[in-house]
Design a protein around this nucleic acid. Structure first.
Length: 173
DNA sequence: TTAGTGATATCC
DNA sequence: GATATCACTAAA
């Protein structure tokens, strides 16, 4: 039970949306009608063409085109040939921003999360609002959130590597 | 610490 | 067409 987050929730700056996204619940409805639920425990912000950790820093390509587009759209891509990573686009159009779902309270790790939720490349470019297969709900729980540097982007340079755009729930249910 | 894996971008 | 690079995970 909970309020499904509307498109407007995502149409704000990623740095504003990310801390609020922590504690929300990803609800995945499978083909057989069963529901999988996972509370978001950790997210990371990738924002702007100048952010060397963000895919959009390489410019506009068929792959990154999504980041420049509508908010509330999922950006799902394959990493290291075997892991699907799930993001949601935020901000206004032409602002390349995305938020990576890095961990849930049960499943720790971005690829484990998508594996559990049965999220793969077929979800890329699909909306997260009004989607019968997957949605994010707010059940009113507000965890304390702390920040930390992002992980896995050693190539991004000293500044962008150390920016505290990782948001982590202090406690969970 | 390292293997495994394939899409993407960037070079010919 | 060929190569280098990767927002990771599991096993050792």
């Amino acid at each position: 039970m909970g309020i499904i987050l509307p498109t407007e929730f995502y149409r704000r700056d990623a740095l504003e949306v990310a801390p609020e996204l922590v504690g929300k619940i990803i609800v995945r409805t499978l083909g057989n009608g069963s529901e999988l639920r996972e509370r978001i425990a950790e997210v990371e912000v990738y924002r702007g063409t100048e952010d060397l950790g963000c895919h959009a820093s390489k410019g506009r390509t068929p792959r990154t085109e999504l980041l420049f587009g509508e908010s509330g759209i999922m950006y799902v891509y394959l990493c290291y040939g075997m892991h699907w990573l799930m993001n949601v686009i935020t901000g206004e159009k032409e602002q390349p921003q995305g938020i990576l779902f890095r961990a849930g309270t049960v499943h720790d790790g971005p690829a484990k999360l998508t594996k559990y939720l049965h999220i793969d490349g077929s979800f890329n470019a699909q909306p997260l609002c009004g989607n019968p297969a997957v949605r994010i709900e707010d059940d009113g729980f507000r965890p304390a959130v702390r920040t930390a540097p992002r992980v896995g982007i050693d190539y991004a340079g000293e500044y962008w590597k150390n920016v505290k755009w990782r948001y982590i729930a202090e406690d969970s249910v």
